[in-house]
Amino acid sequence: MRFKASYNLWLIAPAALMVAVFFLYPLYFSLYSAITLDNGSFTLTHLEKAFELYSNDILFTIMLVCVSVFILAILSITIAATIALSPFKRITSLLGFLYRLPLFIPFIVTAQMMRTFLAKNGLMNNAFVEAGLLTPMETISLLGWSGIIITFVWKQMAFSTLLISGAMAALDESQIRAARNLGASKIRILFEVMLPQITPTLGVAMVLSTVTMMSVLSVPLMIGTGSPTMMSADMAFRVNSYGDYHVANALGLVSYLICAGLAWFYLRQSLKDKGAVA
């Protein structure tokens, strides 16, 4: 028995070591650096400084992410539901192919693409002008907060639609038939039969998307207008311009706490749902 236990430990040792060295240690160190002085004593000054300098940006980030996630949820559910419930198989299979494309385009390419598309003299406005819908004077640049939201949603939609679509496809087809059979419309089926059963997946998709948005640097740098900007850009700025790892890590701690708070909320919610079932 004893031999067996130690033997099993050896089996997981390489993996555990990898996690510890490359994941736990850096994480621990960045959190540690956020709340200590160079001599190792505990301090809150970095956090205070981070809030003092960047509280606007923190709020801006939270707002942007919330709005993006909200739009993202609505669009992904709409696409996934169209694919699941539409009787037109040809069109939905085309849609099923199209929505996946952004999965294979990196964030930085997306940002670059959106930059040329959304700018004041970008592709979109040029097209409007060509079509005679706008004069060059009337064009507005969508770079800035709206551009960031558009880019986030555009890029994350593939991922979250993929998850939600998969969850919908995994539902028992006869459950949907049973609802139609009793006279339910497609909308009713979506809201009363499908969505309640895929909320866990929806939660996962949104939490993971939030974490991704919080961590992307290229989008605020390339599409944002500078001030206010997102926390990821501030962190890069702190490190690159001042070599100030402490405040950068303090900002990291804040964004980590935001994500952790969200994850906690999500876990609590899904546990509650499970509790109700049992």
Partner: peptide
Amino acid sequence: LPAEKRNITMVFQSYALWPH
């Protein structure tokens, strides 16, 4: 007629009850 207008109801082999 679309399925929701037929007023013929089915008891499914797998029951197809809604678990939520």
